[in-house]
Design a protein around this nucleic acid. Structure first.
Lengths: 224, 224
DNA sequence: TGACTATTCCAGCGAGTACTGGAATATACT
DNA sequence: AGTATATTCCAGTACTCGCTGGAATAGTCA
């Protein structure tokens, strides 16, 4: 901050790097992913990620300085959200590059998603859209209820993973059940699939998650 | 490096952050942009960016560790290149997010591109494609010749900016001339436009540059 | 083999970053 | 006003990063 390079070319790259620096920390990436699911107050983020409130606050300041998130005050709470669609698309793009380039990612993902129990290929977004049009599938959103309310696939019903076991009767045995959650590395949908299949349902996973659906410009609804 | 978190969830974000860290430095972003134009040996990169060879080498090691670039040995020289298309798309996406979110970027870009002399809107990729199909425009690639050879828009002719003034007779006065270069912040095309217009040509710029054209899956050719 | 070139490796220093715990703000509740 | 809650601000410390200059490595050419 003391000296000014005065070279517009490097100034420009300096600005680009502000975005880069913002996503140079695993914690901040995790926060961004959460915020792309819907807005949240600071303490909820701290709880969800297991880090201290102070620390979360500091990371949020960093993200805000890079204009990747915005804040909204509501009484004593301050709700943060991703600044726009572009930001979420960028965040999931980051994950995609990591998956494409770093072999480690696949390995860790396997382990994380319980030994890759997913034998069936995930269903493509376009195919799901076609099936929805001919009422040939039921889509369930297995994320927590508030994330569903702040945005979900149009036509999906909300069954948070925790409620799934006692709400099985709402689901038809004859149709295909398609579950989705936060993104390609989210555990909620795979766990839902395991449960559903054990109970004799035909169930598949949607490729990726809500942010990618939204990024593809496909229909979204919000509220309950 | 000393302790292992052993939590696959945070391991995953740790991996994502490797990519983030790689683009957390302005110099590395600049290198990536250059490498997306075509492969180059270390000393050429040092020359192009004005940094020391040692320093460039170190940044390249960092990029290689994140698998964003790859190296190829040829005699005593080592040529670096972007690892794949995905990487270049990500790099230009980074610039796009910076442009969308950081107001400073527009300001610096104005200053950099000589006070925004570009009064005309750039021409869209799809429109250029249509015009090319009906032979309604001439496309010129004003980057240095080696970048043209390592990849260019199919049908474009190579006229490096330095040669433009003495090769004006090759261009028709009747058709639209469309110039392109490295990307939205590259100065070559705007300077070409200024020259062409001063000599009475109808000239416009292609939106963005070659990496974005390629990322859009539009036709590319290589060689001379 | 020996001189030459391109590149990488390494040590060291200054600057920046991440996390912690305690203090300060700001709003709501009574 | 006075208490309680959510969040931010502010050191302090351990750690990491970026750049520099000198030494080492790998290949080429005579």
């Amino acid at each position: 901050m003391t000296r000014t390079p005065a070279d517009p070319r490097s100034d420009l790259h300096e600005q680009f790097a502000r975005i880069g620096k913002a996503v140079a920390s695993p914690k901040r990436i995790e926060l961004l992913e959460l915020l792309c699911q819907g807005e949240r107050p600071v303490d909820a983020l701290a709880q969800a990620t297991g880090m201290s409130v102070t620390n979360v606050s500091q990371h949020l300041q960093a993200l805000k300085a890079a204009r990747l998130v915005e804040a909204r005050r509501e009484g004593t709470r301050i709700h943060y959200r991703a600044a726009d669609e572009h930001v979420c698309r960028f965040t999931s793009e980051l994950g995609a590059v990591a998956r494409a380039r770093l072999v480690e990612v696949e390995r860790i993902a396997q382990e994380y998603l319980e030994g890759g129990g997913d034998t069936l290929e995930p269903i493509a977004r376009e195919e799901l859209l076609r099936r929805l049009a001919r009422r040939d599938a039921v889509v369930i959103d297995v994320r927590p209820g508030d994330e569903y309310r702040s945005g979900h696939i149009r036509g999906a019903i909300s069954i948070p993973l925790d409620d799934l076991a006692r709400r099985l009767r709402e689901l038809p045995k004859t149709k295909l059940i398609v579950a989705y959650c936060r993104g390609p590395y989210c555990v909620l949908a795979p766990q839902a699939l395991a449960l559903l299949r054990a109970r004799g349902f035909r169930a598949r996973r949607l490729e990726d998650g809500l942010p990618e659906w939204r990024a593809a410009g496909l229909p979204i609804a919000s509220g309950s």
